[in-house]
Amino acid sequence: MDVVVCVKQVPDTEQPIRVRPDGGGVEEQGLNWILNYYDEHAVEEALRVREKHGGTVTVVCVGPARATEALRTALAMGADEAVHVQDPALDGADHLGVARVLAETIRQLRYDLVLCGRLATDDNASVVGPALAEYLGLPQATAISRLDISDGVAAVEREVEGGVEVLQVPLPAVFTVERTINEPRYPTLPGIMKAKRKEIRTLGLRDLGLEPGQVGAEAARVRYSRFDPPPRREAGRVVTPDSPEEGARLIAQFLQETAKVL
């Protein structure tokens, strides 16, 4: 079972994120770049599939030079190979453009299964996974919390409103994973050392037979025009009541008179 995992490098959102004064983006200085949280779960799931069924795990990333570090992290977890697509013509590409690039990259690889994270924690879009499935012409399931493979068919579960769907999906297919699917392993020291020596294959659009006009800024159907800090919530009041009864009375009064939900 050969598995391809799509990964993205994102800023650690546990740290402060500030909008540039011109509203044109976020301040990149001082950001700590990491492998997207959900992609760690996708890499972990791929490693578990390999452990159970044999095969290989290849991680693929579309991003600038610094994104190589995200691929190194995935290699240190245990992935076999890494492919990094970088091209200046991809500045300003939208998610559909990125998905198209990933699809052309994956077409050049051997795969029975493609995994992505449910979303990337920088832009939260959740667009690339299903769009990639479309470009590859494969069945899909998004935000899966369980994956079992036998006889070329995947049994997957996904959370929906008020329930859990159980689906049977013939492989090859594209799945995006929810965080509950597994607990990712930490890279080991030997794993990190080994990952440093591994060669990461770098490709540009030309290698994929793509023109900038097909996937770059020119092709984008949406573009970010500005970024703003979130609206500040009006400061409320914080009280330390003399008794639990008083605290309860204050809240009930608030629910009735201010929020009007009683």
Partner: peptide, 23 residues
């Protein structure tokens, strides 16, 4: 933005070549 809406919209966008914005 439901489980099915988030699953379908990006794929639909890719198929018809439409810009898509989520959330």
């Amino acid at each position: 933005s439901t489980a099915w809406g988030r699953d379908c919209a990006p794929r639909l966008a890719a198929r018809v070549g439409a810009g898509v914005v989520t959330d």
